[in-house]
């Protein structure tokens, strides 16, 4: 049994009789200790899909489908049951460490809170464990740092604290939503290395949300490409990045800035804009921007198909095997 088994996850925004689909029929699995990257443009529904796993998507959005974590159905689960999963079995790290920590509580108190809540630890025991956790995320001088407030720390250090909080109860799964986007490049690299190390030390499964394909290559064995709430392509990272089968993935890779590239050539941009919520027609959502679109693409929505882990939703594959 996989650790996380998501089948047909849908998120819809219901406004009166109009209903917009934000995430459509998303399916993937994640085994223990495995890592999966979800990549996609801004607004493709990555964050909301991840939040929906813990029942915390935006209040206006309704989740359907199934997401089993260790066999336990998360979608539609009772609030009390979900609270026992949140933080304890599934850790979550946000994009912006500047705003995700409570400015009025010490770092120690915020880490300790998790252990007191989920493991019934006493404050001294929780603080001792918090010190070990700060060591684990490579924050030097842990005893002094525990007594500090978030504003006394740098952005990179705050994100380390967020990771320490997420890992406090030794979860099996860590969901990281663009954990390095708000940080500067050198700090980004340190955090990516740290996440890689922690995955091994804590035997973590990692669901990484990002639009940085470099991070994906470094951290994740598998990749899922999301566009306008729909899965375009998924498979082994090496495979997806080296030989992308879907035109969207190809375009995404072309649009990527390269250090060794010719700086005089303007950066490739995918023409057009993603559909706004509710605008997608009956065909492939990417068809209007696709350079290889065929007649069938506009009329019929391609089903995800493939062998084993490698799947893609594209009509091209049917015609050019």
């Amino acid at each position: 049994m996989s650790l996380l088994d998501v089948r047909g996850l849908c998120l819809t925004l219901d406004r009166g009789h109009a209903s917009h689909t934000i995430v459509d029929d998303l399916s993937f699995t994640l085994d223990r200790g495995e890592s999966l990257a979800v990549v996609g443009e801004s607004g493709s529904g990555k964050t909301q899909a991840a939040l929906a796993l813990l029942g915390l998507q935006a209040p206006a959005l309704r989740a359907r489908g199934s997401a089993r974590f260790e066999g336990f159905e998360l979608i539609g689960a009772a609030a009390a049951a979900l609270r026992r999963v949140r933080g304890a079995r599934i850790g979550f790290v946000f994009q912006d460490p500047a705003t995700s920590l409570n400015p009025y509580l010490t770092v120690g108190a915020q880490i300790a809170e998790m252990l007191e809540l989920h493991q019934g630890a006493t404050r001294p025991a929780a603080l001792a464990e918090a010190r070990r956790l700060l060591d684990a995320v490579r924050i030097a001088d842990a005893p002094r740092r525990l007594a500090q407030y978030p504003h006394e720390m740098s952005g990179g250090m705050r994100q380390r604290v967020m990771i320490a909080i997420a890992l406090a109860c030794r979860p099996q799964l860590l969901i990281a939503d663009e954990p390095t986007t708000a940080l500067d490049v050198t700090v980004q690299q340190q955090l990516i290395t740290l996440l890689g190390d922690l995955r091994r030390e804590f035997a973590l499964a990692l669901l990484l949300i990002t639009h940085d394909l470099g991070v994906v290559a470094e951290l994740c064995e598998r990749t899922l490409v999301l566009y306008a709430g729909r899965m375009m392509e998924t498979g082994a990272t090496a495979h997806v990045l080296a030989r992308p089968a879907h035109p969207y993935t190809q375009a995404l890779l072309r649009a990527r800035p390269r250090l060794d590239g010719d700086t005089r050539v303007p950066l490739y941009a995918i023409p057009g804009a993603p559909p706004r919520a509710g605008q997608a027609g009956g065909g492939c959502v990417f068809a209007p921007r696709c350079t290889q679109a065929m007649e069938v693409c506009v009329q019929l929505r391609p089903a995800a198909q493939g062998i084993g882990d490698a799947r893609r939703a594209c009509h091209l594959q049917a015609t050019t095997p």
Partner: peptide
Amino acid sequence: RDFVAAAQLSGLRDRDIILRH
């Protein structure tokens, strides 16, 4: 603010989020 969402994602009850955060 994000830290409230973070507290929810940590499994805190609404009551504790109000009182402690």
